[in-house]
């Protein structure tokens, strides 16, 4: 009778001093790797922050005379530069999320992530490391962009900055998780760019970042009703709305008829948690796939 292998094989060769990796520590290491890599690739800084800043400057100048945002008797309450600032901030978070997850496509097939996939770690640990690294980078870049708010009539306080940083971090974790979920299933970076064009950019565009959620009226067209519906269910709408309220607590926020701040927090938190679980689920299920 042949012996069952599990009954007979002895542990050999250094197995006695074998230690178990702490998943949290591994996540921190992987996040640190993201930051190190970023710092060594200067072009990524320009890519993630450059384009949104250029958009903000050009669009602000271009739309300045045509943009009307009125609140009752107060008349015009904000310039386009003010209105568009929170949207640009979210766009920077989105771009950083995309750039940090796009590398997954090649990294897991022919790169460092191959080693991570055969290491004795739960998949959530790897996802958390990747996502947290990308999110920290996004918050740092968002913070740099926030310096430009000094040119706007924004009153900063310590508590306000803490809340803005927290909302940026939450949104970045959610967006990086979303990028992770998409990139993990992709065969090529070209495919990711296609998704970015038809899904991620419209996701941002229909979040109140570029134009306010349209108010419904009796003569609204089906297209406007559809647009309204999409913007209402888009979680990013509530991140942008939250950012508007944190930056401008005066007439601009009231003119936009924004949802309550506490609701914005909750939608952002729930969406981020769901996206993180989606990323973990995607990464775990993939081991059943082919080569």
């Amino acid at each position: 009778m042949m012996q069952r292998p599990e009954d007979t094989i002895p542990d050999r060769g250094g197995s006695n001093d074998r230690t178990t990796a702490c998943p949290w520590r591994a996540s921190i290491t992987l996040a640190w790797r993201e930051i190190l890599r970023f710092l060594r690739q200067g072009s990524r800084v320009v890519g993630a922050i450059g384009q949104p800043v250029i958009f903000w400057i050009f669009f602000s100048a271009g739309f300045d005379r045509n943009f009307r945002l009125e609140a009752g008797s107060e008349g015009q309450v904000a310039s386009f530069a003010e209105y568009y600032f929170p949207g640009t901030l979210v766009l920077i978070l989105l771009f950083t999320a995309i750039f940090s997850t796009i590398s997954l496509i090649e990294d897991r097939r022919e790169g460092f992530l191959q080693s991570v996939l055969v290491a004795p770690l739960p998949r959530w640990s790897m996802v958390l490391g990747k996502v947290a690294g990308g999110a920290v980078l996004a918050v740092i870049q968002g913070g740099l962009f926030l310096l430009l708010a000094l040119t706007l009539p924004v009153e900063f306080s310590f508590w306000k900055l803490v809340q803005i940083a927290a909302l940026m971090l939450l949104a970045s974790l959610g967006l990086t998780s979303l990028g992770f979920t998409i990139a993990w299933r992709m065969e090529s970076t070209q495919g990711f760019h296609a998704i970015m064009t038809v899904f991620l950019m419209p996701l941002w565009l229909l979040s109140g970042a570029f134009f306010p959620v349209p108010a419904l009226a009796a003569d609204s067209t089906w297209l406007q009703i559809g647009l309204y519906g999409i913007m209402q269910v888009n979680p990013l709408t509530y991140t942008v709305a939250g950012m508007h309220q944190l930056l401008y607590d005066g007439p601009l926020s009231s003119a936009l008829d924004l949802p309550p701040m506490v609701f914005c927090w909750w939608v952002t938190i729930v969406a981020t948690v769901l996206m993180f679980f989606a990323a973990c689920w995607t990464a775990t299920g993939s081991s059943r796939a082919g080569p």
Partner: peptide, 15 residues
């Protein structure tokens, strides 16, 4: 925990 793996395609982080 018990196996070491060396891949055909590089698994080093070049940066």
């Amino acid at each position: 925990r018990r196996i070491g793996v060396v891949f055909q395609s590089p698994s080093l982080d070049r940066k």
